[in-house]
């Protein structure tokens, strides 16, 4: 049991402030759970938001993946920090929160959303190899082919050029 605790590798799933049952269903499908376990993950923790699909909790006593969920938390960052892999909806908030903490990330786009400009961001960041980008029904395939080592770490941006432009515009001297 202690060994297991030491080797705890958590997959954290977050759907943000709305609901994204398709994602929750996809991560608790047998295929995906098997693949996660094969890759050495021990825990699956799901932030399920307003969803109405409640996955079956599992304490992992029989050696299977530990599955747990909650609806909302004010400290998502803490969960991301303790995770070894993050599977997230396409909101820019959780994408950058995860990238800033340097965690491997799979973004799953919610196809039910009308205004789906958010997949633009995930696509552009995938082009730069900062994350993997997929849809609920292709999550398993993505997991199967992903190589987390090939991801490029995101370097936080630099806000000083904007500050300089704004300051100059307002007539402040350069520091």
């Amino acid at each position: 049991m202690e060994d297991r605790e030491n080797a705890k590798r958590v997959v954290f799933v977050t759907v943000g402030t709305t609901s994204f049952d398709a994602l929750v269903k996809a991560v608790v499908s047998e295929d995906v759970k098997d693949e996660l376990q094969k890759r050495g993950f021990t825990h699956l923790l799901i932030q399920m938001g307003r969803g109405i699909f409640f996955p079956t909790k599992c304490d992992g006593a029989d050696g299977s993946l530990v599955v747990d969920y909650f609806t909302f938390s004010s400290s998502i960052a803490d969960y991301i920090r303790s995770a070894s892999l993050v599977i997230s909806h396409a909101g820019s908030g959780s994408i950058f929160e995860t990238l800033k903490l340097g965690k491997p990330l799979i973004v799953v786009v919610n196809e039910d959303l009308m205004d789906n400009h958010q997949c633009e961001l995930a696509e552009a960041l995938e082009e730069r190899k900062h994350l993997y980008y997929t849809r609920p029904h292709t999550l398993y395939q993505t997991l199967k082919k992903m190589e987390l080592e090939s991801l490029v770490r995101y370097t936080p941006g630099d806000g000083t050029p904007v500050a300089r432009i704004i300051d100059r515009f307002l007539g402040f001297p350069d520091d």
Binding site: G93, F96, T160, A163
Partner: peptide, 18 residues
Amino acid sequence: GGHTAEMLSLLSVLRKDR
């Protein structure tokens, strides 16, 4: 969500006294 995080990110590089 994301909008607010970005805005606070911008504010953090501006000089508050200005």
